[in-house]
Design a protein around this nucleic acid. Structure first.
Length: 356
DNA sequence: AACTCGGGGTT
DNA sequence: AACCCAGAGTT
C-alpha cells in the first residue's frame, strides 16, 4: 500500500462527513488560529462555546493584543492550560508589531510565534493559507500508525517527525487544509482511541495494514505515563461580613495568574486554621468545616478539605495579598480555576446578618 | 528525553 | 480507574 492511495477516498469521505464547526464556517486566519490553540489537548465539544464567546469579544488580533490579562484569563476560565492564551496574546502583540497585524502566511514564521508548534503552524498554514505542510496531531499519529501497522512509540519525537514526513509527502496541492482536517476527522470519528475502532465505516479499510494484520486494537503504541502525585490542601473561605477573601496566584507555574481561595498545604485542624489566621493578624470569630473535595490535574491530584471562617479585619492585618470581594463581583471579574469548584458557591452567598 | 501545564468526556 | 483529547514550552 502506498500512502498516496488514501488521498482520493479520504477527501471524498470528508466531503460527505465533515462536521459543521464554527471555525469552518468562516475560516479566517485569526479564527483558525484561535480554534487551533483552544483545540490543543481539548475536545471539539468543549471548545465550541468558548470559541463563540472569545471571538465575539475579541474579534481580531488587535483586540486580542490589547485586552487586560484578567479579562483574557476570564474568557479562558475552565478550559485549562492557561499559558495557551497568554502565549497567544504575546504572539498577537508580535504580529501587530512585526507583521502589521496580519498572521504570516508562512510555516516557519508561524512556528516562531509563542504557543505555535509544529502541529499548529501546519494547521494554520494549510487550513487558512492553503500551504502544503502537514498538521500531525494525536489523531493523525493514531491513523498513520494503523494505516502503516507501525508499532513504534508515537510519543518519540523521531517517530512523530517520520510520520510528518510521510504525511507531508502525499498532501494534495489543491486541498492541503481539507486533507489535513480529513485525517484528523477520521481519527476523531472513525479511527477512534479507547475501544473499538469503527472500521466498518472507514473509507480506508481496504488499505489499512493494521486491519489486514488484525492488530488495530494494539495500535498506536505509547510509553505509559508516570503516576500523578497526591497533594493534601486546606482551603479557606475567609469571610468578613458579605465579603470573601481571594488571592492571586503567582505569574508562573500551576494556574499562573488565576485567583483562588487562600489555601495551605496539608490537612489543618480547626485550631491550626485559627492559629494560621491569627498569625496574619486576623481575628477569627467562628469556624465551620466544609465538605471535602478532590480535583485531578494531568500530573497532580489535589485532595482538599475546607473551612469557612468569619473574621474581623484588623487595621494592621497582614494579608495584603488577599482581596476581599463582594459576592457579585466574583463571577464577573476574577478568573478562578475549576479546582476550587466545590467551594466557589460560597463566593456567591449573601451571608446576611445571621449568626453564621 | 523527561517534565510541566487543566479539565472533562469515554470506556 | 485508565485513557486521551486538533500540544507547546521548559529543563
Amino acid at each position: 500500500m502506498e500512502l498516496t492511495d488514501i488521498v482520493k477516498p479520504l477527501l471524498t469521505w470528508y466531503d460527505g462527513n465533515a462536521r459543521i464547526l464554527p471555525w469552518r464556517e468562516d475560516a479566517s486566519p485569526y479564527r483558525v488560529w484561535v480554534s487551533e490553540i483552544m483545540l490543543q489537548q481539548t475536545r471539539v465539544e468543549a471548545v465550541k462555546p468558548y470559541f463563540e464567546r472569545f471571538t465575539r469579544e475579541l474579534p481580531d488580533i488587535q483586540a486580542l493584543a490589547q485586552v487586560p490579562e484578567d479579562r483574557l484569563l476570564k474568557l479562558w476560565e475552565g478550559l485549562g492550560y492557561y499559558n495557551r492564551v497568554r502565549n497567544m496574546q504575546k504572539a498577537a502583540r508580535k504580529v501587530a508589531q512585526e507583521f502589521a497585524g496580519e498572521l504570516p502566511a508562512d510555516y516557519e514564521q508561524l512556528l516562531a510565534l509563542p504557543g505555535i508548534g509544529s502541529y499548529t503552524a501546519g494547521a494554520i498554514a494549510s487550513i487558512a493559507y492553503q500551504i502544503c505542510v502537514p498538521a500531525v496531531d494525536g489523531n493523525v499519529l493514531r491513523v498513520v500508525s494503523r494505516l502503516t501497522a507501525s508499532r513504534d512509540d508515537i510519543l518519540k519525537q523521531s517517530v512523530k517527525k517520520r510520520m510528518e514526513q510521510q504525511v507531508g509527502a502525499v498532501i494534495p496541492a489543491e486541498r492541503p487544509g481539507a486533507f489535513n482536517q480529513a485525517l484528523m476527522e477520521l481519527g476523531a470519528m472513525v479511527c477512534v482511541p479507547n475501544g473499538m475502532a469503527r472500521c466498518d465505516g472507514c473509507p480506508l479499510r481496504e488499505l489499512c495494514e493494521a486491519r489486514k494484520q488484525g492488530i488495530v486494537m494494539e495500535l498506536p503504541r505509547k510509553t505509559p505515563k508516570k503516576a500523578r502525585r497526591l497533594e493534601d490542601r486546606t482551603v479557606l473561605v475567609v469571610r468578613d461580613g458579605d465579603k470573601v477573601a481571594i488571592h492571586r496566584r503567582p505569574g508562573k507555574g500551576l494556574l499562573a495568574g488565576m485567583y483562588e481561595f487562600p489555601n495551605v498545604e496539608g490537612f489543618l485542624t480547626d485550631d491550626e486554621v485559627l492559629a494560621f489566621l491569627k498569625g496574619r493578624k486576623l481575628s477569627p470569630i467562628r469556624i465551620q468545616k466544609l465538605e471535602p473535595s478532590k480535583h485531578i490535574f494531568s500530573h497532580i491530584e489535589w485532595h482538599m478539605i475546607g473551612y469557612v471562617v468569619r473574621v474581623e479585619e484588623l487595621e494592621e492585618m497582614d494579608a495584603s495579598d488577599w482581596i476581599f470581594i463582594e459576592p457579585q463581583d466574583t463571577g464577573r471579574d476574577y478568573p478562578i480555576p475549576a479546582a476550587f469548584g466545590a467551594y466557589t458557591k460560597y463566593l456567591n452567598i449573601k451571608w446576611g446578618l445571621d449568626n453564621n
